[in-house]
Design a protein around this nucleic acid. Structure first.
Lengths: 173, 173
DNA sequence: GCACGTTAAGTGCACCTGCAATCATCTGGA
DNA sequence: TCCAGATGATTGCAGGTGCACTTAACGTGC
């Protein structure tokens, strides 16, 4: 029964904590974004990711890359983009060089909504982290999250791209 | 547009990384558990949590506590428990002192399946972490996860209970 | 130029989830 | 004792997600 490798069991502990922390934070932000702006966490995440690409350079993203960035299946990404497009928050247009690929780009309305929602998101995140920090099991992870953004780059770094190895990078252009 | 508080933006970076890491790991483990044992990550997590309670003492959990432990709504928890009960992996019985509450407990078949699935889970977790560690943005979080289980307690510690403050503890009895 | 395999996006379907409403039970007060 | 408020579990319903499959387009070899 419990005769498993202790090292692996310890890892499972850490994963359990990570999962718990993620769930708590996501639930908290979800409520805040949903009630105040009618956005889900994933929708916000998508807008945020796309806008950041737009920020750095004219790097629009293809569906596949979007799917990888937000960790969703291609089908789910298709529908997510469709929903946001129907709401006028982003645009979809074919890639001229490869007609299979479809680029997505945030519209002005999308950028505006994102700007409105950003404070809500950040505040809710701060609250959720403070709440989680009270739990000794979660505290080390909370600290890791807090230092993740400040350590390497000054303001907004190279985002979460560069992938995990077996796949492609997120920022192509 | 981008005129937001840099400190909050940095936090968002960390949250983004956490979310990405969680998504990658979950997807990887999900595939492994699903194909080899017909279990979803949540189902495994539920069995694991319940079995740990059983391990320490005779602490069965009520639905509400289960819901909090796996970060699920009460309704989703009800159905999750129902599914596993239908498969004979756990039992449900009324609490004698409070007939509103319903205890859940892992059955022998559930414990067996959990024991079978544990190596799969741990291996997949190890793989996912190694994969994520290649990403410099995710590496610090990976290290935090790895050290989370080993630092405080010797083997299996007080699990992820103690809650985040505004709610109740997970291990009552 | 045409057939073959590969890759990107979208669709049908089944399943899981959260919210709101409901039922049963406990608790405190008149 | 009986009633109102609170809490735990469940259910109806709408919506999001993944898997398997289909369609469109690229690239290669003949």
């Amino acid at each position: 029964m419990t005769a498993t490798d202790p090292a692996l069991t310890a890892l499972a502990q850490g994963w359990c904590a990570l999962s718990l922390l993620h769930g708590r934070i996501e639930a908290h932000i979800e409520r805040a974004l949903q009630t105040k702006h009618g956005l889900s966490v994933r929708e916000y995440s998508l807008l945020n990711t796309l806008s950041r690409q737009h920020d750095g350079e004219g790097g629009h993203l293809q569906m596949k890359q979007v799917a990888d960035a937000v960790v969703l299946s291609q089908s789910a990404t298709t529908r997510l983009v469709t929903r946001l497009e129907d709401r006028g928050l982003l645009k979809r247009y074919l890639c001229p060089t490869d007609r299979r690929g479809i680029y997505t780009d945030v519209s002005e309305a999308g950028a505006r909504l994102l700007a409105e929602a950003r404070p809500t998101n950040d505040t809710a995140l701060r609250e959720a982290l403070d709440e989680a920090a009270k739990n000794p099991e979660l505290a080390p992870l909370v600290r890791a999250v807090e230092s993740a953004g400040t350590s390497g780059e000054p303001s907004h770094g190279p985002d979460e791209s560069s992938d995990a190895g077996a796949e492609q990078v997120i920022v192509p252009a």
